[in-house]
């Protein structure tokens, strides 16, 4: 008998059951099950509650780590931040991922455009009323060529690496080679620390907004979220995807997905995300198609767990 014939025979033998039945109350069993599970869930909820850690705001971040905030803002201004280099769906940055000749990220285009310098720095500052010094600094910066702008930016970034993590220290950074950048950054820092930048990034052209893309991308470019996440063991390379804040169980069902990120070649590849997604797509397809996969579908016959499950049946039908 060939493998194919045998598989067919096994399949055919399972089509119908002509053996004995026993009485059974489906609705009663379902009611009992729903009630019991509901009670278990209520018990767990009362015993353990659920986590709810307050979100990080631009305001709290710029107050706690002003240097990190200003450095991040400089990255947005000079186009070296993660968002600025990201590529689609945000911008034309160079870091779009691909798998061999498959460039899905680029093909789907820029759906949520972000111009980091304009959206995070120059735009919010230009919208501030009054402040003639800021207005003239903005005009100077905008008039300058990109080479001049970058020279100012890099000189300011170098100066920033040497200051203490306080708003006062940042405001003391001045020099002839920095151009208007200190004025811009001092204003942006004050605006952020007062909570204005949170509002400016949330308010779009329309009154109502539920889209947090811009503000979350800025937060993610900085270190505020990541340092909290590291402390809570939530980083990607800490299997963080399946973890939760505090001591709560997390999304344990993501174990396989997050596992790939821990091992080579995924852990070191700039295309890790698309590679892991491709692997998981193939495995998910295999999972759905288990009934048709030779080898996998035969496993339950080779590992006799079924003898335990149906031991009563086998005992009773043995001659």
């Amino acid at each position: 008998m060939t493998y194919r014939e045998r598989t067919r025979a096994i399949d055919a033998a399972a089509r119908h059951w002509d053996g004995p039945y026993r009485p059974y109350d489906l609705i009663k069993e379902a009611t009992i099950a729903v009630t019991i599970v509901g009670l278990i869930a209520v018990t767990l909820a009362i015993l353990f509650s659920s986590p709810d850690e307050a979100p990080t705001t631009i305001r709290s971040w710029s107050r706690q780590n002003p240097v990190d905030f200003v450095s991040t803002a400089m990255g947005e201004l000079d186009g070296t931040s993660t968002t600025a280099e990201y590529g689609p769906p945000y911008d034309h940055g160079p870091k779009a991922q691909h798998l061999a000749f498959i460039h899905l990220q680029s093909w789907l285009g820029i759906a949520h455009p972000i111009n980091t310098a304009q959206d995070y720095v120059l735009g919010p500052l230009a919208a501030l009323p009054g402040q003639p010094a800021l207005r003239s600094a903005l005009a100077t910066y905008r008039r300058a060529g990109s080479a001049r702008q970058l020279a100012w930016d890099h000189a300011y970034e170098r100066a920033l690496t040497k200051v203490a993590d306080s708003a006062t220290a940042i405001r003391a950074v001045h020099g002839p080679n920095l151009g208007p950048v200190p004025t811009l950054m001092d204003s942006l820092l004050s605006f952020a620390q007062g909570g204005g930048l949170d509002g400016a990034l949330l308010a779009n052209r329309q009154f109502y907004s539920t889209d947090y893309t811009k503000i979350l991308m800025l937060l993610a470019d900085g270190g505020a979220l990541a340092s909290r996440a590291r402390a809570e063991h939530l980083l990607g390379n800490q299997w963080g995807m399946m973890n939760e804040t505090g001591s709560f169980p997390g999304q344990g069902w993501l174990w396989l997905y997050t596992m790939w990120y821990q091992i080579k070649p995924f852990s070191t590849s700039p295309n890790a995300d698309i590679m892991v997604m491709a692997v998981m797509f193939v495995l998910s397809l295999g999972f759905v198609l288990v009934p048709f996969l030779p080898g996998v579908r035969d496993l339950p016959r080779l590992v006799p767990v079924y003898r335990l499950i149906w031991r009563e049946h086998y005992r009773s039908t043995r001659p």
Binding site: A45, F48, S49, H233, G246, S247
Partner: peptide
Amino acid sequence: FAAIINLNGHAGY
């Protein structure tokens, strides 16, 4: 409805 067992502390790994 405060938790009877507080799970807000850091977890072990």
